[in-house]
Design a protein around this nucleic acid. Structure first.
Length: 624
DNA sequence: GCGAGAGTTGGACGT
DNA sequence: TACGTCCAACTCTCG
């Protein structure tokens, strides 16, 4: 029998070490092996992605390609610019492929795509081999061992995984790779739909990504940001398996750090270097195997003795949480990314709710503006001009670097949702999806649900203060000074609350606390806080209490029909305003009165606009 | 079915 | 500085 002709399809497993799928491909003893990456238009036009994450991906691809070439000078990572669903059927034929091998994807689009590709392969007589490799334990197996239910707690994950067994030991990198075969592409390139383009506002140059299937020089080169029409990245964090393994070596070398790591004791304010490992972006792109990380850490922990930390706070605990979210997503499916239709996510009548596709019930990526005030708060949060320096510093660090500490994420997420703006967690998740280098759909959705107290966590009375929480870690405000240069010279006494600084202190520091950070921004100013935090915390807490009392979940019929309103008291201050679900216009904005004066209680039920007396006082307080 | 205790990492105040 | 206690009170797990 002729020897196999194998395509190894790299996706989010951009590494050579510990790849069960790559091992399966090599076990076939192929005559030829093509290491292929398909530049999938779905991710370019339909999924949110900022330029920093593209850059990190390109770093990973370039590094992987070099590593492949080191093992076989005739080979590299071959990038083809077409969606895999249309490309593979043509490749199977043109390259006389016998096997297609890849790592199992865990996300909804990925699974759908893989099914289509596998079906096409079957039609073409190509054998498909899939291996799980993205998580400690195969998420589908975890779900099965958990009775088909999602793992909504660490206990649940640990008891299910215990039935599977130990995390597999990592597989060493291959020592050699076969030659690639001939690569004719004398077939018609399928042009992708470039509209709608969810990344349009970030695509400032000419997009030539799909001009030639094998790239501008016809050599299957790795694409560039320029080719895709993206501006250069700003992040200092670089990708690639080589860097990942080197960074891991450095961490493991520090036995004490590795063995005694406790996440809650690491500072969200520390940067350069940060207080945590910053390995998550590598995990996301598969440049680092999660099992490699797990066992390298666990071996240190085992030899360290009883002083070592343990899950959930320890390093391996962080990885176990990751698996928990993956397994929860595996059980719930695409609805895990949203409240609507998700029976495990509590319904809270947040502002700025997602628009839903009536056909699928899934979110469209757009949202209803039920409250102009909340929308402004959301925009100020996103841009890092809330007037709360701790929040603004983190949001600016996130935008520029693509990474912030986990507790920083807690802080800004709590602030946007249950502890400040009362804006839908899905809005925040979308911003993280765009900006985070390590954006992992399952972890992102899971953590936003956690922080908004809609799933996984429910102690909504534990609220992060945008002032005290930062102060606890960073009295002098170094993180703020780094990311909010307007406040660089402000006395530490006022750095977390610059609006409290007397005019002469502001003058001395060369800054005026003025404006809203969005309109007519003057040089040398920093915005006033967008609300009185204590007022907002009280309003949100009361609203959360009401919503918990109502006790609706995302899959409840009353959520989809809108009759949930009957269950909430009309006098509830903090509740989603009405909007016309067809046009998306705010139906009760006609007699707009609540927003000019910064009154945050402007939205009522059924067109009524109840006000709390305290809100007026809150606005006045801010003006002093 | 019930109660006790635990639960990734809050804040304010005390010793 | 590190660690307790209270605040007012959530869900889940386990016995």
């Amino acid at each position: 029998m002729a020897k196999p002709r194998v395509i190894y399809w790299f996706r989010t497993d951009l590494r050579l070490h510990d790849s069960p799928a790559l091992k399966a491909a090599l076990d076939l003893e192929p005559a030829v092996l093509w290491p292929v990456f398909t530049w999938d238009p779905h991710y370019v036009y339909r999924a949110r992605g900022g330029t920093n994450r593209w850059q990190f991906l390109l770093d990973c691809q370039n590094d992987l390609s070099e590593s492949i070439t080191k093992l076989n000078p005739n080979s590299k990572l071959f990038v083809l610019r077409e969606g895999p669903q249309t490309l593979f059927p043509k490749l199977f034929k043109a390259w006389k492929v016998t096997h297609l091998v890849f790592e199992k994807d865990t996300d909804s689009y990925g699974r759908e795509r893989d099914e289509a590709v596998a079906e096409a392969a079957e039609k073409a007589g190509v054998q498909v081999i899939i291996r799980s490799g993205r998580t400690l334990w195969d998420s589908e197996q975890v779900v099965t061992k958990h009775g088909g239910k999602p793992t909504m707690s660490m206990t649940a994950l640990l008891s299910a995984s215990k039935k599977i067994g130990d995390v597999p030991r990592p597989i060493p990198s291959p020592k050699q790779l076969p030659d690639p075969g001939e690569m004719p592409v004398d077939f018609v390139q399928h042009q992708p739909d470039t509209k709608p383009d969810i990344n349009a506002e970030r695509r400032t140059n000419n997009d030539t990504g799909y001009k030639h299937i094998a790239g501008p020089c016809g050599d299957f080169a790795i694409e560039t940001l320029d080719e895709l029409g993206f501006v250069p990245a700003t992040t200092p964090h670089k990708g690639g398996e080589t860097r990942a393994l080197k960074a891991l070596d450095a961490i493991i070398k520090d036995k004490e750090y590795t063995a005694t790591f406790e996440k809650p004791k690491t500072s969200p304010a520390q940067f350069d270097p940060q207080s945590t490992t910053l390995l998550s972006p590598f995990l996301h792109f598969g440049a680092l195997s999660v099992r490699e990380l797990y066992w390298r850490v666990q071996d240190v922990v085992n030899s360290y003795g009883s002083a070592a930390s343990a899950p959930p706070a320890s390093l391996t605990g962080q990885l176990i949480f990751r698996d928990m979210y993956f397994a929860a997503q595996a059980a719930i499916g695409p609805h895990f990314q949203q409240t609507a239709g998700n029976g495990h996510c509590r319904f809270i009548p947040w502002h700025l709710p997602s628009r839903l596709d009536p056909a699928t019930g899934l979110t469209t990526g757009d949202y209803h503006v039920d409250s102009e005030q909340a929308d402004e708060w959301f925009r100020r949060w996103k841009q890092g001009v809330t007037g709360f320096p701790w929040i603004d510093a983190l949001m600016r660090q996130l935008r520029h670097d693509g990474w912030i500490h986990h507790l920083g994420r807690h802080s800004v997420a709590c602030f946007l949702t249950r502890g400040g703006c009362y804006v839908d967690w899905e809005r925040g998740a979308e911003v993280f999806e765009e900006l985070l280098l390590d954006h992992e759909p399952a972890c992102n959705a899971g953590n936003w649900q956690w922080l908004s107290c809609t799933a996984f966590f429910s102690q909504y009375f534990r609220c992060y203060s945008p002032i005290s929480f930062g102060q606890k870690w960073d009295k002098h405000g170094d993180l703020i000074r780094r990311w909010v240069p307007e406040l660089q010279n402000l006395d530490a006494k006022y750095i977390y609350e610059p609006w409290k600084a007397p005019i002469q202190d502001q003058k001395k520091a060369g800054v005026r606390v003025k404006g809203d950070g969005l309109r007519d921004v003057e040089v040398g100013t920093y915005p006033k806080p967008m609300f009185d935090f204590n007022e907002r915390r009280d309003a949100c807490l009361a609203a959360m209490k009401t919503a918990y009392g109502v006790g609706l979940y995302g899959d409840d019929e009353r959520v989809s029909t809108g009759t949930w309103r009957e269950m909430f008291p009309e006098s509830q201050g903090e509740i989603q305003g009405r909007f016309d679900s067809d046009s998306g216009e705010n139906a009760d904005d006609g007699d707009e009165d609540g927003d000019e004066d910064g009154d945050e209680e402007g939205d009522g039920v059924g067109g009524k606009r109840p006000r709390k007396a305290s809100s007026a006082t809150a606005s006045k307080k801010l003006k002093t």
